[in-house]
Simulated scan of single mutants.
Amino acid sequence: MENTSTSAVTTTSAGLRYGLIIGVVTIIYSFILMLTNMEQNAGMGFVTFIILIGGIVLAHRYYKQHNGGFMSYGQGLGIATITGAVIGLLSGIFRYVYVTFIDPQYQENAMNAMRAKFEEAGNMSDEQIDQAMQMTQRFTPSGPMGILIAVLGTAFFAFLLSLIISAITKRNRPEFE
């Protein structure tokens, strides 16, 4: 019987661990963006995308370190999906708490900023802007539904990213080991 110095880590434990870590990082980053009114900035949103990719890569690396350096493609997909779901849960709860208790005017301010951007662009009539604003309000869920959509959306997005990331980070065990 071979004695190894690394203990096996499951895909679930790796996903939960890095979901919690990256979820907290994302919450701190989102809180800073909300306080500085920079959440609508597309460049700042891109940083959140980079944080998610980095979290998936780190979760894969952690899993491989504790499993003899190996991780299958399917395990990589599972880790990323669990990581994304945990990040979505934490982010959804944070957004709900922020919008409900910390800054109840946040949603209204965000809608006003969006209207100002539409008006500044000058390529839409007032009627079209009003329609766009109504559609945005209709499809911006709040409360428990917002949390559920954050969980499902982030898990799905992490899964999609992981289709590529897992192909790069996987390392299959030799068949005849």
Rank of each mutant, 00 (worst) to 15 (best):
D103F: 01
S166V: 09
I79K: 12
L58P: 06
L35G: 05
A116T: 04
V24K: 01
V86R: 01
I56M: 15
T11W: 13
G69P: 05
A85G: 15
F101E: 03
E108I: 14
V86M: 02
I164N: 04
I28K: 00
A8P: 09
G23S: 04
A116G: 00
L58S: 10
T11F: 08
R115I: 15
I164C: 02
F46Y: 09
S7F: 09
Y98R: 01
Q134N: 15
H66G: 11
G153V: 09
G78C: 03
L33G: 00
I168W: 09
Q65S: 11
L16Y: 03
P141M: 08
T12I: 09
G153I: 13
L33W: 00
N109P: 04
P104I: 07
T48H: 05
E120K: 13
Q128P: 11
R173W: 08
D103R: 08
L163G: 15
N37W: 05
I87H: 03
Y29E: 00
L89E: 01
E108W: 04
I129C: 02
I28R: 06
G23P: 06
M145L: 15
R138L: 15
G88N: 12
Q75F: 11
E120Q: 14
I164P: 11
I147T: 04
N112P: 02
V151N: 12
